[in-house]
């Protein structure tokens, strides 16, 4: 009896060991989840990286930064893409659920652009004007120097990091106007502004095709600054921000390889291709 027990135990241990040992020889899976702003960027990174590293499979999903952070808390993704810094409560809940500190990795720079329809004559605004428009204090284009027409507000749903960033940095944590229309993704915002002559929207600079990304002035005294790479990197453009990756615990193994690659010249070149801005000096120093 005892002998048989031992054999069974050994067999079980061997089986377990075999099943554990098997995956590394097969494909490595990495999940990237979160920000819709960073969805294209993540997909391009994954494509290029998988071409050079055939042993690694990267799955990229959007849904919004909030979705990604929720997934990191629940442990359904290894890397969370976020277009806003994580809040302390969120870091705490990752620590509580996953028993690991959050690692924050800035991976790219974005200029949050304010989009107008191409037919709109306005090409610059102050931060104060944008705030008043999105809070519903200004409801007609003529009050900011345009034609007499009602302003139609578009933006992102409240799961979006861009929404939260905009609310914090432009609205100073105030509320959006009642008539603000939240849409499911940045592409939908662009589409709405293209279709609506009186529309205004916001989103990552990487998406700003067929719409006008206006220049923004910090206040009435300073001049308007266009959302270009130099202005975003030098922080002259008032709505520039970092895009982040988050992991539970410090990245190791395959994930560390990916993180290093993304921060290196190849990864940062992809950032430029997609329309975002590479981290300051990253391409020269590494």
């Amino acid at each position: 009896m005892n002998q048989r027990h031992r054999i069974v135990t050994i067999a079980a241990v061997l089986l377990l060991a075999a099943s554990c040992a098997a995956p590394p020889s097969e494909k490595q899976n990495i999940n990237l989840k979160g920000s819709d702003t960073m969805l294209q960027l993540g997909q391009r990174w994954a494509e290029v990286y998988m071409k050079d590293h055939p042993g690694v499979t990267i799955q990229v999903t959007g849904g919004g930064s909030g979705t990604g952070i929720a997934a990191l808390v629940n442990g359904t993704t290894q890397i969370c893409q976020s277009s806003r810094p994580m809040k302390d409560e969120e870091k705490a809940s990752v620590k509580q659920q996953r028993q690991a500190e959050v690692t924050e990795i800035p991976v790219a720079v974005d200029a949050l652009a304010v989009y107008l329809n191409r037919q709109n004559p306005i090409d610059h605004m102050t931060m104060e004007q944008i705030r008043r428009i999105f809070q519903g204090e200004i409801t007609n284009w003529k009050d900011v120097g345009g034609p007499s027409a009602g302003i139609v507000l578009y933006g992102r749903e409240n799961n979006s990091g861009t929404y939260v960033f905009f609310k914090e940095h432009v609205l100073a944590n105030g509320d959006f106007a009642e008539r603000y229309q939240p849409l499911g993704g940045t592409a939908a915002v662009i589409n709405a502004v293209i279709k609506d002559v009186n529309g205004i929207g916001y989103g990552g600079i990487g998406y700003a095709t067929d719409v006008k990304a206006i220049s923004v002035a910090k206040d009435a005294a300073s001049g308007p600054v266009p959302p270009t790479m130099e202005n975003a990197l030098s922080n002259k453009y008032p709505l520039s921000r970092f895009l982040y990756w988050y992991t539970a615990g410090s990245p190791a193994g395959t994930i560390k390889g990916l993180v290093d690659w993304v921060l290196g010249p190849q990864g940062q070149n992809v950032v430029k291709d997609v329309g975002f801005y590479p981290l300051k000096g990253a391409s020269e120093s590494q």
Binding site: G63, G66, T67, I69, A70, E90, N158, N159, Q181, P182
Partner: peptide
């Protein structure tokens, strides 16, 4: 524009912390 109960649940439930 309007926001309905069902659309609110649909667009927000996927993203909230469990």
């Amino acid at each position: 524009p309007v926001r309905t109960l069902s659309a609110t649940v649909a667009s927000e439930l996927g993203e909230v912390v469990f």
